[in-house]
Amino acid sequence: MARYIGPKTKIARIFGEAIFGADKYLDRKNFPPGQHGLARKRKKVSEYGIQLKEKQKAKAIYGVLEKQFRRTFEEAARLGGITGANLLILLESRLDNVVYRMGIAPTRAAARQLVSHRHITVNGEVLNIPSYRVKAGEVIGVREKSKSLEVIAGAVASANSSRYSWIEWNKETMSGRFIQKPERSEITENINEQLIVELYSK
């Protein structure tokens, strides 16, 4: 699958913000990447360009490719209500994102890898589909023989999953419950979803 595996700071510099978390390199180079950086004359960005950039940012944050992102948007539109809010709530309900929010992995990319490599269980059964939509009440845990993995143990030790009201987490058993889908107001990612809706509505 064509996923970007290069330096995360390079992507963050495109958007001018630390979309992958704290980034000491971005603090030093908070300008667009490229040979000339800020010195290069840049054209005024069109309305379409602004909308496209916001979509690309959302895709980068959640680690979703275009085809899957478009399908998620179409599902959000079918749900009724506010399409943009539905989109972010559906993205937050992905298994890889829930694993990340619970603190089992330090990043969403690491969470996706843990799921793909069969280290994560849903209701006691191993599930290796990162895009699986977690339902309210389902229990997410670490496979017994995977609990000693350094990446998991390190992430769990330093995580603070209690800051998310829609998630319950038990550090002792390394398992948690997805209580409910979050409200849009609870999702802290800096995404203007209305721009994405306008882009897809063209």
Results as ranks from 00 to 15, higher is better:
residue 139 V to M: 11
residue 51 Q to G: 02
residue 57 K to N: 04
residue 79 L to P: 05
residue 124 G to I: 13
residue 44 K to M: 03
residue 199 L to H: 06
residue 185 S to D: 10
residue 43 K to G: 13
residue 170 N to F: 02
residue 126 V to C: 07
residue 28 R to S: 11
residue 170 N to C: 04
residue 37 G to I: 11
residue 27 D to H: 06
residue 28 R to H: 10
residue 103 G to C: 04
residue 16 G to V: 11
residue 168 E to N: 14
residue 27 D to I: 04
residue 28 R to L: 14
residue 166 W to D: 10
residue 47 E to V: 04
residue 127 L to G: 01
residue 197 V to S: 06
residue 169 W to H: 12
residue 178 F to R: 05
residue 71 R to Y: 06
residue 193 E to N: 02
residue 105 A to H: 07
residue 161 S to C: 03
residue 165 S to F: 01
residue 11 I to G: 02
residue 182 P to L: 05
residue 116 S to F: 00
residue 169 W to C: 06
residue 148 S to Q: 02
residue 111 A to Y: 05
residue 69 F to D: 03
residue 6 G to V: 03
residue 118 R to W: 00
residue 66 E to L: 05
residue 18 A to S: 14
residue 147 K to R: 15
residue 174 M to S: 09
residue 121 T to Y: 01
residue 65 L to M: 12
residue 74 E to T: 03
residue 120 I to E: 05
residue 122 V to S: 04
residue 164 Y to Q: 08
residue 14 I to Y: 11
residue 132 Y to S: 04
residue 70 R to Q: 14
residue 136 A to R: 08
residue 202 K to N: 10
residue 37 G to Y: 10
residue 31 F to N: 09
residue 60 A to M: 04
residue 50 I to W: 09
residue 12 A to F: 05
residue 104 I to L: 15
residue 79 L to Q: 14
residue 47 E to D: 12
residue 80 G to Y: 12
residue 17 E to A: 08
residue 112 R to M: 01
residue 12 A to S: 15
residue 19 I to W: 01
residue 53 K to M: 13
residue 47 E to N: 11
residue 63 G to W: 01
residue 11 I to L: 12
residue 156 V to M: 06
residue 43 K to H: 13
residue 89 I to N: 04
residue 21 G to F: 11
residue 73 F to T: 02
residue 192 N to A: 11
residue 6 G to L: 08
residue 182 P to A: 09
residue 57 K to F: 09
residue 183 E to Y: 05
residue 172 E to R: 15
residue 116 S to Q: 10
residue 109 A to V: 10
residue 67 K to D: 13
residue 56 Q to N: 14
residue 47 E to M: 03
residue 202 K to C: 02
residue 72 T to W: 03
residue 179 I to K: 15
residue 168 E to H: 10
residue 5 I to L: 11
residue 180 Q to H: 14
residue 109 A to I: 04
residue 63 G to E: 04
residue 155 A to N: 01
residue 149 L to R: 10
residue 42 R to N: 04
residue 6 G to Y: 08
residue 172 E to C: 05
residue 56 Q to P: 12
residue 10 K to H: 06
residue 79 L to T: 07
residue 157 A to D: 15
residue 18 A to E: 14
residue 169 W to V: 13
